[in-house]
């Protein structure tokens, strides 16, 4: 360990010199990815990738999810790998289409949410004054309005609920928290000297925001986006489960609701409700794993060091 310490001091002394050495030059964006590639991240990413592939390819190769058959509630078999529902629909086909539906809702809601929170958070904080006051009042009001009851009110007020309506409602009720985080970050960034320097250099306001400030918010925004997907998938599942989701759509939530209505639990038809439930849990867990890894990279306080790895590396460097 003693050598390790002296070595790190030597590296720091080099850094103070006029000419940084080669190892320093290699740090930077590649280091971001190297630090991100933890086991946690890899597991999360693989699970997410599998679910996304299932949602993309599954609907193309499975049967018609709505085709009704007279073999209701049959357990998994060769013809129906995941069994059938009470009206004889193929559960695997339903699951594939539901995965596609849920992911679409999740990604679109997260994207809209991110857009809204970026607009209200960043622009308000950068411009300041009355704009900031107005925007943060709006986001504070949106923050205290309880989301789910509002969604229920809106959804039950509108006659036919399209998927788009559900997406818009979820995005409108979900952006406020993200806006506050981005506002706080922007407030700290806008007075950094490099932002002032770009203003002195003559950059226009929109360019200062988009080119100088936004890149430095990307880690925060990507973590917000990932959590947004989980939140939206769960919220949509909740809405569909209580029966006010988009009419005629297929998502994990509608599958669970159908299973509930078809009394799958009573008949012991585990193949009907378990797959969508498991996929929701798997997606939530995997996205959280990704999020933790991103968090560890942005927030130095959460950074964990693999001591065995460090020691192996120093040993290797001593040998060479």
């Amino acid at each position: 360990m003693a050598e390790l310490i002296t070595e790190s001091i030597a590296v720091r002394a080099d850094a103070a010199d006029e000419e940084p050495d080669d190892s320093q030059r290699r740090r930077g964006r590649s280091a971001f990815w190297r630090r991100l590639l933890t086991p946690k991240f890899v597991v999360g990413a693989v699970v997410v990738l599998l679910i996304v592939l299932f949602g993309l390819i599954g609907p193309l190769i499975t049967q018609d999810p709505n085709a009704i058959d007279n073999i209701g509630l049959s357990s998994p078999s060769g013809a129906h790998p995941l069994g059938t529902t009470s009206v004889g629909q193929d559960v695997l086909a339903q699951l594939a289409h539901s995965t596609r539906g849920s992911l679409t809702v999740g990604v679109l809601v997260a994207a809209f949410t991110l857009g809204l929170s970026a607009f209200f958070g960043i622009i308000g904080a950068y411009i300041g004054g009355i704009t900031d006051e107005g925007f943060s009042l709006l986001s504070n009001v949106m923050l205290v309005i309880p989301g789910l009851p509002l969604v229920i009110v809106i959804a039950s007020y509108v006659e036919s609920q399209s998927v788009l309506l559900v997406i818009v409602v979820l995005a409108l009720t979900g952006w406020a928290a993200g806006a506050r985080v981005l506002r706080a970050q922007t407030l700290s960034l806008r007075n950094r000297e490099y932002v002032l320097a770009s203003r002195v250099a003559g950059e226009r306001t929109w360019r200062v925001i988009c080119v100088e400030i936004l890149p430095n918010l990307l880690p925060v925004m990507s973590s917000g986006f990932v959590f947004g997907i989980v939140g939206a998938v769960l919220a949509e599942a909740g809405l569909s489960f209580i029966g006010i989701g988009a009419t005629g759509s297929l998502t994990w939530g509608t599958m669970l609701a159908d299973a509930q209505n078809g009394q799958a639990l009573l008949f012991g038809a585990w193949w009907w409700f378990a797959p969508p439930g498991l996929l929701i849990a798997a997606l939530g867990a995997a996205l959280s794993l990704i999020n933790f890894s991103i968090d560890e990279v942005i927030n130095p306080k959460l950074r964990t060091t693999n001591i065995a790895k460090v020691e192996r590396r120093t040993k290797r460097e001593h040998q060479s």
């Binding site: 950094r192 000297e193 490099y194 932002v195 002032l196 320097a197 770009s198 002195v200 250099a201 003559g202 080119v211 100088e212 890149p215 430095n216």
Partner: peptide, 20 residues
């Protein structure tokens, strides 16, 4: 005016955008 009057900031660690 800015093309005539320019400024060098105090902290070289803060005055360059780490992203660029």
């Amino acid at each position: 005016y800015r093309s005539q009057v320019q400024m060098v900031f105090q902290d070289p660690f803060a005055s360059l955008n780490p992203f660029h």
